[in-house]
């Protein structure tokens, strides 16, 4: 592959865009014709990316992850199968369950719906990157204390969705937690506890549910 600079892959979408609008733009904007034509020529001169593996560099949890990936490889596939970062889970691989949620520049994103090459140049945080020096974050700590996990397979996704919410909104309401987690599914049924954990992590008082042990007889 000619494309040895992983940074160039980031210009992929811009170049395609230029190609697609090229003809119209040239016809209607005479003054810019020359510069656009020059851009086009430059764009066309570049090698098409793929279908074979190309170098891709991802910034994951503050470290550069250098990989050789086909352009069609998703960020989730790259993390789970081309590196050892298996914390992000594959539950559906089509953007419906949220188990693969990561943060890209602090925004929660389904990593199964993002191509790895598109994620270049952004700060990616996975569940492995939350706890620093073995100390759980407030969100993780609250999930543990409230037992907001059972089998745990959806848990990394929920932790990322709640963590992303709390980065932007320090004191969310219950409705805001619901909204933040609307793209995550848990089959074991830990939702009431996830709600409690999210609010506890934010320091918001919560007493929606009651549980009690009584003696028989």
């Amino acid at each position: 592959m000619n494309n040895s600079d992983p940074g160039k892959a980031g210009s992929f979408s811009r170049r395609s865009f230029l190609k697609s609008i090229g003809t119209t733009a040239v016809a209607t904007a005479a003054a810019q014709t020359q510069s656009i034509a020059a851009e086009l020529e430059k764009a066309n001169a570049e090698t098409t990316i793929g279908p074979g593996a190309v170098p891709v560099t991802l910034q994951v949890n503050g470290e550069a992850l250098k990989l050789q990936l086909e352009p069609r490889v998703t960020l989730l596939d790259a993390l789970r199968n081309y590196s050892s970062l298996t914390g992000s889970k594959e539950g559906c691989d089509r953007g419906t369950c949220g188990a693969c949620t990561v943060m890209i520049d602090d925004t929660p994103v389904y990593s199964c719906m993002k191509l790895a090459i598109e994620a270049q140049g952004h700060a990616i945080t996975t569940v492995e990157g939350l706890a620093k020096d073995g100390k759980l974050t407030k969100v993780q700590q609250a999930f543990m204390e409230r037992d907001a996990l059972m089998c745990g397979y959806c848990t990394p996704g929920f932790v990322m969705s709640v963590s992303a919410l709390l980065k932007k909104n320090f004191r969310p309401t219950a409705d805001e937690v619901r909204h933040a987690c609307v793209g995550n599914i848990c089959r074991c049924g830990t939702y009431p506890r996830i709600m409690e954990a999210a609010l506890q992590a934010a320091g918001v008082a919560t007493a929606m549910n009651k549980t009690e042990v009584i003696t028989y007889g």
Partner: peptide
Amino acid sequence: MPEFDIVLLN
């Protein structure tokens, strides 16, 4: 999620 009230009979 509804409101829950869970009672365990020990």
